[in-house]
């Protein structure tokens, strides 16, 4: 995967964020990884409100659903309505096994919906598959 492509992780749980980071490290994914604590935080980072705008705009977002202030689905709504972020590839990485959330997410054009495995080993496998996937696809 092109190292210039930055990835935004929207995750409120610090350990989960560490988990992703560790997994990336293990999988030798060296792309810049930005972490936002919730939807609002992520939007602010994308748009550069009250802080420095992420540049270039991330082409991949790893999104948790259950978060304070603005949850994943609300965040998806917000970016899909914004022409600038409309075509960002979003992969949902969540503990929510709710049908309602899955349907809502896919309706908002997510590239995948992954349930966070409890065991670190399983998570590693998931991240490896993601890397393969990202290498395979062409991003705009």
């Amino acid at each position: 995967m092109d190292n210039s492509i930055s990835i935004l992780l929207v995750e409120d749980d610090e350990v989960d964020a560490m988990n992703v980071k560790r997994a990336f490290k293990k999988a030798n994914i060296t792309n810049p990884l930005y972490v936002a604590e919730n939807g609002l935080d992520a939007l602010a980072m994308l748009r550069g409100e009250d802080r420095e705008k992420i540049s270039p705009t991330p082409k991949i977002i790893l999104l948790d659903i259950n978060m304070p202030k603005m949850n994943g689905i609300e965040f998806l709504h917000a970016i899909r309505e914004d022409p600038e972020f409309k075509c960002i590839s979003v992969v949902v990485l969540t503990t929510s096994n709710e049908e309602r959330d899955k349907v809502a997410a896919y309706n908002l054009n997510v590239a995948g919906y992954i349930l966070k495995p409890v065991e670190p080993q399983k998570f590693m496998e998931a991240v490896s598959v993601l890397e393969v996937y990202w290498n395979l696809i062409e991003l705009p």
Binding site: D13, V15, D16, M18, N19, R22, N66, T95, S96, K116, V118, E119, P120, Q121, F123
Partner: peptide
């Protein structure tokens, strides 16, 4: 059960690490 899962996962992860 959902909210119990998150710390469980954290425990699991942290132990692993």
């Amino acid at each position: 059960s959902h909210d119990l899962k998150a710390p469980l996962r954290a425990i699991s992860n942290l132990a692993e690490w």
